[in-house]
């Protein structure tokens, strides 16, 4: 066991290091965006004095290095800063409650996690099951149909899949609402119902990868001597695959699942827009549009963190799925 613990600690340290490097990349990239908040908010007729004044208010006149370390320092204490839009509104109009980036992002992020969670709960078992079945009935009609179905759904644009689902499940057969306008304080049942259509759309998007990796990883092992042994012990084809092949095929499958889950957290803007789902993706795009740097940076950092955390989890689970590492000699 100490071997595994050491591996996990190493990966964890690497994850933190990666996050730090990513923070530099984010900061540099965001600062290289053309135009800034002051120019955008004041429009074309802005006087240089007005622009300079807003920049001074927001601290944009400081050198980049100073701003980076201030941001980093704040971030370590959990303070992601205040949105420029909020700050500007506050100084110019006065009054009103001041919202920090954290309080702005938190509910949106919770919504995104909810959508990702619902999607994962449907897509992961669905993809695994399809993968196992198509490995079991490989080269049969079922296998071909599954491959064609999942490949065409991953090849279609997300909005197209969304509209097809809306057409069939909301317009022709009004089972599910086509708008996912969820809000705080909504009951779990209602929330789930409203989230179902976007979740189904995303399921269609992410299933193909996971299903095909499951199928390939299992089929890859079917020529192994221990699979032949299981067959020669008279085990049923289903048992051979689930009990003998699957446990040895877990590592690559886990990695593909992690990548797809990360995608669900970071890359679903189109689906959010189609269903008017208040997730973090829309917030992020809006913030980029008006160069609201604190919000953009916070979102990027959350996305990066999600990728790193999920890959880390996948690494650790892969290690744990290997009995050679779990039980050294």
């Amino acid at each position: 066991m100490p071997g595994v613990l050491k591996i996990i600690l190493q990966r964890l340290a690497l994850g933190v290091l990666t996050l730090f490097i990513v923070s530099i990349v984010i900061f540099t990239a965001v600062n290289m965006l053309p135009g800034d908040f002051a120019e955008l908010i004041l429009g074309q007729g802005a006087t240089p004095e007005a622009v300079a004044s807003i920049r001074r208010d927001l601290g944009l006149d400081q050198p980049a290095l100073t701003r980076y370390f201030e941001w980093l320092g704040d971030m370590l204490t959990g303070n992601l800063g205040t949105s420029f839009a909020q700050l500007n509104f506050q100084t110019n109009m006065g009054g009103g409650e001041m919202k920090t980036v954290v309080s702005q992002i938190a509910p949106r992020f919770a919504n995104t996690m909810f959508l990702a969670g619902v999607t994962a709960a449907i897509a992961v078992p669905f993809a695994l099951m399809l993968g196992i079945l198509s490995a079991l009935y490989r080269n049969s009609v079922f296998d071909r149909f599954t491959n064609i179905f999942t490949l065409s759904s991953i090849s279609s644009p997300e909005f197209f899949l969304a509209y097809i689902l809306i057409l069939f499940l909301a317009v022709l057969n009004p089972i599910l609402p086509s708008l996912s306008n969820i809000y705080e304080g909504m009951g779990f049942g209602e929330r789930l119902q409203k989230t179902l259509l976007p979740a189904l759309t995303l399921t269609l998007v992410v299933t193909a990868h996971m299903m095909r990796m499951t199928r390939a990883a299992i089929i890859n092992l079917l020529a192994s001597p221990y699979i032949e042994m299981a067959r020669l012990k008279g085990m049923s084809p289903m048992r051979v695959i689930v009990k003998h092949a699957l446990p040895n095929a877990l590592a690559p499958i886990i990695n593909v699942i992690a990548l797809n889950l990360a995608y669900l957290i970071t890359g679903v803007v189109v689906v959010e827009v189609v269903f008017v789902y208040p997730g973090i993706g829309q917030l992020f795009v809006d913030a980029v549009k008006i160069r609201d740097i604190p919000v953009v940076q916070a979102c990027c950092l959350i996305f990066a963190g999600a990728y790193i955390l999920l890959n880390l989890t996948a690494d650790i689970l892969s290690v744990l799925s290997n009995p050679r590492l779990r039980h050294p000699k």
């Binding site: 192994s224 001597p225 221990y226 032949e228 042994m229 299981a230 067959r231 020669l232 012990k233 008279g234 085990m235 003998h244 446990p247 040895n248 009995p323 050679r324």
Partner: peptide, 21 residues
């Protein structure tokens, strides 16, 4: 129904023929 029960097999490489999991 016969395999494993009435007819059994011992393979050349036991290391490869036992399931590592």
């Amino acid at each position: 129904n016969l395999l494993g029960k009435r007819i059994a097999y011992v393979a050349q490489s036991a290391a490869a023929s036992f399931n590592p999991a």
